[in-house]
């Protein structure tokens, strides 16, 4: 069984983890067109390559980002999510 390394709890069986989807930026709901919003909601990028994905270590509830090459199914690195600059600017305002 595959191993995945939780940034807090270390390497564990993949069965201790839950997948949370690809990490994607949400478009601004106010500014975006209906078509662009529908694209965000319904379409996913299936092109193989290195993807940033949300993963959760379920016994501890730690969410983190895994960079995974979907061509070879190898997990290249994992790290805790840092909220983007946009969110931080929002908080500061």
């Amino acid at each position: 069984m595959k191993l995945m390394t939780c940034p807090i709890n270390g390497p564990r069986l993949i069965s201790e983890f839950a997948y949370g989807g690809e990490m994607r930026e949400m478009p601004d709901p106010v500014a975006v067109s209906d078509a662009a919003w529908a694209d965000y909601v319904f379409n996913r990028n299936g092109v193989p390559g290195v993807k940033k994905e949300w993963w959760c270590h379920t016994p501890s509830g730690v969410w983190f980002i895994a960079e995974r090459d979907t061509t070879t199914d190898t997990i290249q690195r994992t790290y805790l999510y840092q909220p983007g600059a946009r969110v931080r600017a929002e908080r500061a305002a």
Partner: peptide, 13 residues
């Protein structure tokens, strides 16, 4: 849902 709440809180900062 509890798990997803954790993700949303992290994502939204």
């Amino acid at each position: 849902l509890f798990r997803e709440f954790g993700r949303l809180a992290t994502w939204w900062g």
